[in-house]
Write a protein that binds this DNA or RNA. Structure first.
Lengths: 165, 165
DNA sequence: CACAATTTAGTTGGACACAACTGAATCACT
DNA sequence: AGTGATTCAGTTGTGTCCAACTAAATTGTG
């Protein structure tokens, strides 16, 4: 308390860093929520939330998947997926069945209603792209940067992990 | 089922859009969560969650603010802030007091403990930047793009809104 | 002054997100 | 065959996030 190891000049540099940090982490946070918010409006017609839409996108593409694979595609664990899938099942869009070969695994597949919903969902991407006001090129670029960021962050998270040998 | 109104060529173009959409919206979603996850690890020492850290950053910068302003800075409403601030108050980092001039307003200000925490927080930004593996320049660039995106999305959300005159 | 509209926090309910845990099924190895 | 580790889905608890609502205080207007 009595010691002031950092001269005021350097202190203000650190404060600058804090302000920058606020701007950066806030940017991503805010962008994610703004995106979420637009999706919420667009998806309301389909009766889906944003994460539910992500699950449906994967299912429309792959047809049928065990919960485990679904989680790998979306980087979500069972703690998030289990209740979400339960809601999708309650909505009549998917059905879950224990695999007979491996009874630990639960296979998620689309119902007819779930499959039919895809037709209406085809209009969603265009509306979203329009909402961003970005050219497709810009979006692809942002996409690449974000993926690179996620990859780096995941790698860093692993290094930070206590179980590093 | 029996009718196939869309020729296969166009159908696959739409499907391509769906896949793209999955990639884009998923990118942002995933990046946000990865960011959140790294912050979680780094902030654990400070006993803060990521949104709590955002609130503290604003308070460290501005000293004292009514809940309303805090919400404007962070784009969060009272439904999110009220319980969050209650937890920060329980942790002894902030104190809330009804303004005497306008009793509708609640002023949030730092306790000594909350102010002291800033010193330890000064190390956070550097650790995060390191985790991203990005150059400062890249980060600033991403920051700018994300802000532009958020701005466009907010504008679009307003247009979508039913109450447009 | 009276009283309707607005502003401000707070509460409630529903839906993620994740850590930590449980329980069942399977695998690996002896 | 036996048994200990691993895999997989699900549950529980905590913390956002937001929409919709409530309640109190303030402001604007006749």
């Amino acid at each position: 308390m009595t010691t002031t190891p950092i001269p005021s000049a350097e202190a203000s540099a650190s404060e600058e860093f804090l302000r920058l940090d606020r701007q950066i982490c806030f940017s991503l946070h805010a962008a994610s929520r703004a995106f979420n918010s637009v999706y919420r409006v667009v998806l309301k017609d389909l009766g889906l939330t944003y994460p539910q839409y992500l699950v449906m996108l994967v299912l429309w593409e792959h047809g049928e998947l065990p919960v485990k694979s679904l989680g790998e595609h979306l980087r979500l664990d069972s703690g998030t997926l289990s209740p979400l899938l339960k809601r999708l099942e309650a909505a009549g869009l998917v059905r879950r069945e224990r695999s007979r070969e491996d009874e630990r695994s639960v296979r998620v597949h689309l119902t007819d209603e779930g499959t039919a919903l895809k037709k209406r969902a085809l209009l969603v991407p265009t509306r979203i792209v329009t909402a961003t006001g970005f050219e497709l090129e810009d979006i692809m670029d942002l996409h690449a940067r974000l993926d690179r960021l996620t990859q780096a962050l995941d790698a860093a998270a692993l290094e930070e992990a206590p179980g590093c040998v």
